[in-house]
Write a protein that binds this DNA or RNA. Structure first.
Length: 252
DNA sequence: AACATGGTCAACCGCTAGTTA
DNA sequence: ATAACTAGCGGTTGACCATGT
């Protein structure tokens, strides 16, 4: 079994994803699904390896991702499942809808592990794992009691991810705005569709057409890349609506 | 105010398992 | 049967941010 060559390929972009890349990936998966991650970036016109695209989609762009802090119940579930499953993060994630293995792994390493260790070292003190009857005064644990709120860290990450540099420009869309725009009804129409039978050639032609449009939309003023977000998204979605018609092509 | 330290999380790396030709 | 290939998994890294000194 040979190991697949991947990101070391020349010209592959690495590091944080830009909003444009995100949108290209979202739209491509919207239209054609993700039956072949390796071929996806090439067809979509992304300078990323398939692995990177898959990770970005699974850990961040997927429509069913639940953002916000873990609830005490979720934390309890993670602790319990970790006790029985060990570091099988994907198995644990399967029991927590909307949570990714990566996210669970991070939460475990950042505070749940410490909490469990502390508990073990103290020989199991009065602290209740589910967080409801906690007697601890640690800030870290207090934080975990805040249910379904956006943590400062997550907020800042959203900002960094979307690179919103102008604080005063209210027209710029935040991640939350985009999430609201790209709501469940948006996703439900296409994500589950298996488009693997579409002919690759057709995909390339259709997609390149969309890409050209989007590049044109974006390229007219690169120095103020995000000032025209509303127009960008509007154009993008209206383009999609037209190109979506291609999805009616009968399966081969 | 400036620097050091620690926490958080997205992204990458390297491996294995499964699939296909 | 097996070699080539891909998807998925878990571990690790590094950038960013908050807090402490």
């Amino acid at each position: 079994m040979g190991r697949a060559p991947c990101c070391e390929k020349m010209g592959m972009k690495r590091g944080p994803w830009t909003p444009e890349e995100d949108q290209i990936l979202i739209n491509y998966i919207h239209l054609y699904g993700h039956s072949n991650w390796r071929a996806l970036p090439k067809h979509a016109g992304l300078l990323r390896c398939g692995k990177s695209c898959r990770l970005r989609w699974i850990n961040y762009l997927r429509p069913d991702i639940k953002r916000g802090n873990f609830t005490p119940q979720e934390e309890e579930t993670i602790i319990n499942l970790h006790e029985s499953l060990g570091n099988r993060w994907s198995a644990i994630a399967a029991k927590l809808p909307g949570r990714t293995d990566n996210e669970i792994k991070n939460v475990w390493h950042t505070h749940l592990k410490k909490r469990v260790n502390k508990k073990q070292n103290n020989g199991g003190d009065t602290k209740d794992i589910n967080g409801i009857n906690e007697t601890t005064t640690h800030d870290e644990d207090k934080e975990s009691m805040i249910v379904e709120t956006t943590s400062p860290q997550q907020f800042s990450n959203s900002i960094s991810t979307f690179d919103i540099s102008n604080d005063n420009n209210n027209d710029i869309m935040s991640y939350e705005d985009i999430s609201a725009l790209v709501d469940e009804s948006f996703w439900s129409d296409f994500v589950s569709v298996d488009n693997s039978n579409h002919k690759e050639k057709k995909i390339e032609e259709d997609w390149e057409g969309l890409l050209d449009r989007n590049i044109k939309i974006n390229s007219y003023n690169n120095s103020e890349l995000y000032d025209d977000d509303m127009e960008f998204w509007f154009e993008l979605f209206t383009s999609n609506r037209r190109i979506e018609e291609f999805s009616d092509i009968p399966d081969c």
